[in-house]
Amino acid sequence: MAAVSHVWALMFGKPIGDSVDDLPMDQTHPKFLDVLAEDFVHHGFDLRRLIGLIACSDAFRVASRADFEVTTEHEENFAVFPLVRLRPEQVAGVLIQSARIKRIDRQSSLFLQLQAIFDGDKFVQRYGDVGEDEFTADAITITQRLLMMNGGMVADLIGDNPVLNASSHVAMFATDETQAIDSIYLSVLNRHPTKVELDHFESQLLSEKKHRQAIEDLAWVLVNSSEFAWNH
């Protein structure tokens, strides 16, 4: 049961009850926890299977957006996906990845892998290492906003770097404004822009003489958004 609770918390960014470890003896817990725990035991404590089962659940696949007014009760009852802050190392990881066209993994050059590790560590130190408090539902802090708005790592990753940076590649190779905006949205937020967003940034890009700079500005806006820093 405790193992299931841990995996659940890791995948959702928050525990089912008040705490990951402190499972109350005298209260009922959701029935599906029993089902998952039983399955976990029956299949020889197969973590892969457990993760797969949770990933297939409606609760995990549901969006954080709905066509009704969303309240915390909806979140608690798995009607929508809970809005949860990413952990500092996750923010560092996605920030570094968002600036690269190719996936950074073990196949990447040693330089890129090391850069991801060292820059990531430095970033986490400033952003705030949550350590044991990793599942608390804290809000964004002033330090975090300053670091994202004015920090050196963000500036380096979105700035002019024709060899490494996604924003420079987009500025050089996108065939028109729509494709440029779409590519930046995909590399930073992993989605296409909405119509409102596309219209706004398209007219902005068309009126802007410094094309590269405008694309860099768009990348800045997206990495500074709530959508970037929160699991949704």
């Binding site: 957006r65 409102v196 967003e197 940034f201 997206l222 958004s225 959508e227 949704h232």
Partner: peptide, 15 residues
């Protein structure tokens, strides 16, 4: 751009 466009879009339909 952040506050009036992107954040507004993110909030739409969410919590």
């Amino acid at each position: 751009d952040l506050s009036d466009v992107v954040e507004k879009e993110f909030r739409r339909g969410r919590l």
